[in-house]
Design a protein around this nucleic acid. Structure first.
Lengths: 254, 254
DNA sequence: CCGCCGCGTTTATGACCTAAACGGGAGGGC
DNA sequence: GCCCTCCCGTTTAGGTCATAAACGCGGCGG
């Protein structure tokens, strides 16, 4: 057998769904319904559990039925990524245009992406690591429309072409690092419902500081770290602007 | 068939190795040889191509032989990650102790990890995303010894316990974001040797800025971005230190 | 000289992806 | 009303994989 005991993969079709699944309600697949179901499925059972057969069952259908609407598993995953990233368009707090300046724009965009990451922790690693369509599409902002929008806002705000591109790169790296780590940490603390494991992780006694700092390391300050790093990034970005157009102060020196 | 045409996955055992493979030279497996071979294999053929059978063939042996030394595929991947991360111990430019202050220490550590990422672009995503042993082990620095070392250096340099932990978190996020993006961008520009693809990616005409900035977006300035973001991070970290112990200037104002 | 054991091989099972053939029912043309 | 035809989900089949379990060979200590 494959994946002999992985908790997520121990999916007897029974346990997986007919009861609470969306199950279409009236039969009749289509690409959208499949993709949405796939996202929900991954949210509920984890990426590893996603199988054509199981997703089919989740929709009340044989696995092969999906192939009529989706070219294959890889394409399905691409669709999942796209579906999740596109949630950004439905977010009332995030806008394609900067109504209140580039700082506000980038903050809303960052928070919007963070919301998505936290809403779909099991999907986000996919968003982060799936090979992008073009080399300059940098996860997690992998939508041409949003990239265009970001560049537009920066340029309208007075940044040079080169600096706009640099901001895009720095912003991507920032988001990827912080969100991927936040999401995967959350996954580790929630996910592995495994047995207490015979090995208490490893011999901690050899690492006195790890022991002493364990409380500090385990406190979840991801939200605060994110805010602070975002502020720092925005401050740094502001310095790229010709002095006259620079916003006075990003934060009121708490 | 699986993976119908993926270039990396088109591995007839013939194409894969006996010729240039390590092939032990004298038969006789062991865990170390297997792990090293796995790293080389992934470097050469990509992660997707790694199969128990193929790795066996690469070593001149049947796939099942590996199971005597490795509990299974997952464990193998864990071993690969560990192997690669442990290269840090062999790096003459990186030291467990800070001989020249914490700034120098963090710079060397960051560059050491970047060297690893660039040396094993196909392995790095694994380093980045594999669930860590403990929740406070943050990729890509997933070695207890190095975490301990980092915390030690920071604390010896006068940072509080809390700030040392904060530095560790910020440093991890920074490395993860920048290195993962750099490595995957490199992978995209090299990797997909696919047919020119009927769709020229997507209709670019709707995104005038993407078109106009394409040159700026495609220039590879990853190294420079990395240095600048590292400097910015270190500057920010320096502010955590009591004023008296703060290093005068990190960069001589270029 | 023999039986045991370390180690790679063979055999077997089951999960999974996917190509291809299949079949039933619903709707349109007559 | 009848039949033809697609649309769409199902069945069938075959290939790749991971992995458990039985196997067998060669060397070594008794």
């Amino acid at each position: 057998m494959n994946d002999p005991d992985t908790p997520a993969a121990r999916g007897d079709a029974a346990a997986i769904s007919p009861a609470d699944a969306p199950d279409t309600g009236h039969g009749g697949l289509d690409r959208r319904r499949i993709l949405d179901a796939a996202v929900r499925f991954i949210d509920e059972h984890g990426l590893r559990a996603l199988t054509m057969q199981r997703l089919g069952a989740y929709l009340g259908v044989e696995g092969m039925a999906l192939y009529r609407y989706v070219p294959g598993r890889e394409a399905l995953l691409d669709g999942v990524v796209e579906t999740v990233v596109d949630e950004l368009f439905g977010d009332p707090d995030v806008h394609l245009e900067a109504h209140a300046g580039w700082v506000d724009y980038l903050q809303r965009l960052a928070h919007g992406l963070r919301r998505i990451a936290l809403a779909h922790p099991e999907v986000f690693p996919l968003v982060a690591t799936r090979p992008p369509a073009a080399p300059w599409v940098r996860p997690p902002l992998r939508s041409l429309r949003w990239i265009e929008s970001l560049l537009d806002v920066m340029i309208e705000s007075g940044f040079s072409d080169e600096n706009a591109a640099a901001v895009y790169r720095a912003f991507s790296s920032f988001l990827l690092g912080y969100l991927l780590l936040e999401v995967s940490a959350r996954g580790v603390e929630t996910g592995p419902v495994e047995e207490p494991d015979v090995s208490p992780i490893e011999d901690l006694s050899r690492y006195p500081l790890l022991q002493r700092l364990e409380p500090h390391l385990s406190v979840d300050v991801a939200a605060q770290d994110f805010e602070e790093a975002l502020e720092a990034l925005l401050d740094r970005v502001a310095l790229l602007l010709p002095r006259r157009r620079r916003p006075a102060r990003l934060t009121e020196g708490k």
